[in-house]
Design a protein around this nucleic acid. Structure first.
Lengths: 155, 155
DNA sequence: TTGTGTGGTTGCATCATAAAACCAAATGGC
DNA sequence: GCCATTTGGTTTTATGATGCAACCACACAA
């Protein structure tokens, strides 16, 4: 088995995230889900992807607790895929990806949409990193520490 | 050609970002680069990945303007790979991925490190989205607008 | 019950990935 | 200067993932 190198057991949280949503389609599916898409056919026609990999991705996202299948909702006894809180929690990731593209893309004129504050219609500010006390932090102001052992009995 | 479905021409900025760094290794390479790694061998031994795909990824990242090859720096006439500003600009993406894992991972006890404010040693705050005027925004407070045509002559 | 649309699964061709072998240039010891 | 070793890759080969198309099952409608 050559196995696509799963990062599931890795101790790096970034690797662990990538294990769940680090493939070509998962984040785009989540992006559509955040816009309200729920049905297999909706995802398929909107993203234009092959149905078998859509099925595989949906299954994987459900397995990872990012999507949940709801029995129905709009009459038709079909299934639908709704984001869980964990799934909605990916929003900052999508915003970060979007802002990176907006800032650094070589052909920004090809970008069709911008994310705006609904109330004012103005672009949202760049994501910022702050300390607990509110100080603005740059990458150089941060460092990694070993995770402190939680005071709970070692599971 | 079945081609890995490139998102290069896509108008969605998220898709465009994923086209550059949406594979299994690129973000991990960038993560190591942010920690100061620069040499081929350093990446290879730290990430434990096959050398051929490391070479392919480094080439791709250089092509995308995320890394740049510098002729030397530490005496040895070898090459090294340094982050460009565009590469350093991915930092919020990595932070978002990390925080998502810290918040939602099913086995958080396996996460080895936490990102802290260097000065105080305390964990950094969660990334927040703000409006231009500073109001804290939730996903529901935002919406997408078509990109306004820039007033510069069409390049 | 025959049709049609939705929601998939199955087969097959092609591509990407991974591991290991191989290789050339740069370095280091002497 | 000469040989061994390290560095920084490329090539080879096997296998898994992707993409397309065809097929299929079920719901629903007439």
């Amino acid at each position: 088995m050559v196995k696509r190198t799963s990062f599931e057991g890795d101790s790096c949280p970034i690797a662990r995230s990538l294990d769940a949503l680090g493939d070509w389609w998962s984040l785009l599916i989540i992006r559509e889900a955040l816009f309200g898409l729920r049905r297999f056919g909706e995802f398929q026609s909107k993203l234009g992807m092959a149905k078998n990999i859509l099925a595989a991705r949906l299954r994987s996202l459900v397995d990872h607790g990012i999507l949940a299948t709801a029995p129905a909702s709009d009459g038709s006894a079909y299934q639908e895929y709704a984001l869980t809180p964990k799934g909605r929690g990916t929003f900052p990731i999508l915003v970060a990806l979007r802002q990176w593209s907006e800032e650094f893309d070589d052909r920004p004129e090809e970008i069709a949409t911008i994310l705006v504050d609904r109330e004012k219609g103005r672009p949202v500010k760049k994501l910022e990193m702050h300390a607990e006390d509110g100080r603005l932090l740059s990458p150089a102001d941060t460092t990694l520490k070993p995770r402190p052992a939680r005071p709970r009995r070692s599971a």
